[in-house]
Design a protein around this nucleic acid. Sequence first.
DNA 1: TTCATATGTAATGTCTGAAGTTACATATAT
DNA 2: ATATATGTAACTTCAGACATTACATATGAA
Lengths: 156, 156
Amino acid sequence: MIEEPKGQAMQLDGRLSRMMHLLIHMDRANGPITSGEAAEMLHTNPVVIRRTMAGLRDVGFVRSIKGHAGGWTLLKPLESISMLDVYKAVGQPRIFAIGLADPAPDCLVEQAVNASMTSALEKAEALLIAQLGEVTLAAIAKDFDRRFSASCANSP
Amino acid sequence: MIEEPKGQAMQLDGRLSRMMHLLIHMDRANGPITSGEAAEMLHTNPVVIRRTMAGLRDVGFVRSIKGHAGGWTLLKPLESISMLDVYKAVGQPRIFAIGLADPAPDCLVEQAVNASMTSALEKAEALLIAQLGEVTLAAIAKDFDRRFSASCANSP
DNA sequence: TTCATATGTAATGTCTGAAGTTACATATAT
DNA sequence: ATATATGTAACTTCAGACATTACATATGAA
């Protein structure tokens, strides 16, 4: 049997999923969480945390405090933050990996192809955005609680 | 409202749109189209054409003939080829540029985040696949005919 | 003040996959 | 034979997220 390398898959933009993860941890924390602590939680680097959290700070979801006893604090309740809010806060990353070869071609055939492709992609994007808007971080946190209870049920 | 930066063409996978474009041209052509001719149509390289068309040949949509008077020929009517068929033929490229930071995390919080993300992405993907399945290349070719007539109406 | 601690950010390196390119082997009409 | 075409391997290029290094700046405590 051939061993699959599979250390990490492809180069996906994980900012949305990472920030959701972190915000829920921050809601659970007592005091501020430092970039170093957050980096450990997300298995990444403190600078990556600061860089990505900057967007969340800009829209007022979190606050950062420098120096001793500093770190990051959640400012808004999870009920008020949807997945879509986080998506926007991290800069609305490009959604699709597939797309048009040329967005403004001279060829009328390619224009017709682009029209069909764009129509399909836009519908899928609209549904995704709608889905992201329907789920709050509080709902995800609640799902976590359910999973946590279930995992504890298996321990004496 | 957040203004999207929305720059130029990034690193998108254009194989689906390119092959659709080319197949419609092949349907319009009298004889075989060479990789060189196709490359000019798509503003790319003959090797890229051969590489990508190989998938379409494997599923029987086209045939390639070597040597003098060789090239690529369409084997099936555009009515019988959907966008989804082409998508599959080019290897079902990855659809999304966003995704999970870690597909199999230990952290239960991240597992809950992943569940929500996956749910949203899967619904959007299902809709996209459905859209691709509903449109044949013949329908796109017909749309081209409309555009062509419209463009001729502006000429004496 | 002095110093350990944290964030802010620029600069640089790493990684991945489509696309582009070069080179050459192979097949086929004339 | 030769010109023409495909088939592939083996590169290079490119873009963007992520990782890392380095240093400036701010802050609380001894």
